[in-house]
Lab assay of single mutants.
Amino acid sequence: TTEYTFTDDEEARRAIEELKKRGLTFRYEKHGTTWRVRVD
């Protein structure tokens, strides 16, 4: 499991789109302004 942290909404959304394109399994949660994206 790899975890990424983003504080920029645009950056987080781009990363999420990219992961979807690659067909990877991931989860994300947003805490205030911080996004945590975990890739299995």
Rank of each mutant, 00 (worst) to 15 (best):
T1P: 12
T1N: 06
T1C: 13
T1A: 11
T1I: 14
T2S: 07
T2V: 14
T2D: 05
E3V: 14
E3Q: 06
E3A: 04
E3I: 14
E3P: 02
Y4S: 02
Y4R: 02
Y4M: 08
Y4W: 13
Y4K: 03
T5E: 08
T5N: 05
F6R: 00
F6W: 03
F6C: 05
F6M: 02
F6G: 02
T7L: 08
T7F: 13
T7Y: 14
T7C: 05
D8V: 05
D8S: 14
D8K: 05
D8L: 04
D8M: 04
D9S: 08
D9K: 08
D9F: 13
E10Y: 09
E10P: 03
E10H: 10
E11A: 12
E11R: 05
E11K: 07
E11Y: 04
A12D: 00
A12L: 14
A12P: 01
R13G: 05
R13E: 09
R13L: 13
R13N: 07
R13D: 04
R14S: 08
R14W: 08
A15P: 00
A15I: 11
A15T: 10
I16K: 01
I16Q: 01
I16H: 00
I16Y: 02
E17R: 12
E17Q: 10
E17M: 10
E17V: 07
E17P: 00
E18A: 10
E18S: 09
L19P: 00
L19D: 00
L19V: 03
L19I: 06
L19S: 01
L19A: 04
K20M: 12
K21G: 06
K21Q: 08
K21W: 06
K21D: 06
K21L: 10
R22Y: 07
R22D: 05
R22Q: 13
R22F: 06
G23S: 03
G23V: 01
G23D: 03
G23L: 03
L24S: 05
L24G: 03
L24F: 12
L24N: 04
T25S: 13
T25K: 13
F26Y: 08
F26T: 03
R27F: 14
R27P: 00
R27M: 11
R27L: 08
Y28A: 14
E29K: 07
E29Y: 13
E29R: 06
E29F: 13
K30E: 02
K30D: 02
K30N: 04
K30P: 01
K30Y: 05
H31W: 08
H31S: 11
H31E: 13
H31Y: 11
G32E: 05
G32M: 03
G32I: 02
T33M: 09
T33D: 14
T34Q: 07
T34C: 07
T34K: 05
W35H: 07
W35L: 04
W35V: 06
W35Q: 02
R36S: 10
R36D: 04
R36C: 12
R36A: 05
R36M: 12
R36G: 02
V37N: 00
V37F: 09
R38V: 15
R38S: 14
R38K: 12
R38M: 15
R38P: 01
R38G: 03
V39Q: 02
V39L: 07
V39G: 01
V39W: 04
D40R: 08
D40L: 15
D40K: 08
D40Y: 15
